[in-house]
């Protein structure tokens, strides 16, 4: 224990002076200004030490920070676009071969070209986009409603233990119930109306959105919540500034799944609930083609349903998810 301390234990102006004085011992430069060289004239050893420290720190920071290089666009196309294109081409070739060797009679298995023609016909008489739009708008509306119901529901289940114990298991159980099972019940309740379709969509999508949020909240590291509380983010501010943003990755995964469930439920509902009063969506188109034994159109409708489902996922959800994950450094930056 050295004895150069200038502090006496009971100093009336207690610790501020005491804390600064040992640092100043041996030189005249005021340590408070030492971090700004040239600010307070005179270069004492403390200022020099502080400069050295700053330089040392800058060096460490530079050594430990890695600069990322952007992957060129050509490379991205080659890596991301080529493989699925090859896969689709292979499927088409296999299909064409199956058609060629008549694995099934032609009226049961039309060629890719015939399906394309069926699509083209619907495009040319101007009805194709109508079917797509009818289904898409129903899907979007149903999804939006599910979002509005599922989000607060998930939040309550995640944060209120009693609610969680009461309906948590039911909510996750509902996810494994195929929503097509609701169609007969919904038809009896609501008749052949849009309400039936929306009821089925909601019953399919709400549980998965709520469950996604619950999973997202459960996966928040407790440290974030503690850190939030220490800086004073409690109550509603805590939910808004810490809980919800921290749960966002899980929530988005839930939304993605919620959309898939919405779309599936919608198709099931449209396929079964067909009536002249209801607008004609892709499901109704599919059912109509089956009634007419038009296999080309059946396949064309299936293809459209698939394309819309994938398209929404690829154009809306995937970019949002990638952005959220990348901004948090959660996306493995490829190679």
């Amino acid at each position: 224990m050295a004895s150069t301390d200038t502090r006496s234990p009971g100093d009336p102006e207690p610790q501020h002076a005491a804390s600064a004085s040992p640092i100043d011992a041996g030189n005249t430069v005021n340590t408070v200004n030492a971090g700004r060289p040239g600010g307070a004239g005179g270069k004492g050893s403390a200022a020099g030490a502080s400069d050295q420290l700053a330089g040392l720190e800058a060096g460490l920071d530079a050594l430990e920070t890695h600069t990322k290089t952007r992957v060129p666009l050509g490379r991205v196309l080659l890596d991301q676009v080529l493989p699925p294109v090859v896969a689709v081409a292979l499927v088409l070739i296999a299909w064409q071969l199956a058609y060629h060797f008549e694995v099934k009679p032609h009226y049961q298995l039309p060629s890719p070209a015939e399906v394309a023609r069926a699509l083209q016909d619907k495009w040319l008489d101007g009805t194709l986009l109508g079917y797509v739009w009818e289904s898409l708008s129903r899907g979007a509306l149903g999804f939006a409603a599910s979002l509005i119901i599922g989000t607060p529901l998930g939040l309550v289940v995640a944060r209120v233990w009693f609610v969680r114990a009461a309906i948590g298991p039911i909510l996750s159980g509902l996810q494994s119930l195929p929503s097509v099972a609701w169609v007969p019940a919904a038809i009896i309740w609501f008749g052949l109306t849009n309400s039936t379709i929306y009821a089925v969509v909601l019953l399919g999508a709400v549980p998965s959105i709520a469950n996604g949020l619950v999973a997202g909240v459960d996966q928040i590291p407790p440290l974030f919540l503690r850190a939030g509380r220490t800086i004073g983010a409690t109550g509603f501010a805590g939910i808004r500034h810490v809980l919800l943003p921290a749960a966002l990755p899980g929530y988005i995964a839930g939304l993605k799944q919620g959309w898939a469930f919405s779309w599936r439920s919608l198709m099931a509902a449209e396929l079964i609930a067909t009536s002249p009063e209801l607008g004609t969506g892709l499901g109704q188109l599919l059912d109509q083609a089956r009634v007419d034994s038009d296999m080309s159109l059946v396949l064309a409708a299936i293809l459209l349903i698939l394309i819309v489902g994938i398209g929404i996922e690829l154009l809306i959800f995937a970019p949002i998810e990638r952005r959220v994950l990348r901004s948090r450094g959660l996306l493995a930056s490829n190679r």
Partner: peptide, 26 residues
């Protein structure tokens, strides 16, 4: 104020915004 062994910074905010959140709460 409390500092942990882990930095406990919020990954959805930038360095500056992390500090600003504490300022805002204050």
């Amino acid at each position: 104020a409390l500092m942990f062994q882990e930095h406990a910074l919020f990954p959805w905010l930038t360095a500056g915004k992390n500090i600003e959140l504490a300022l805002r709460m204050r």
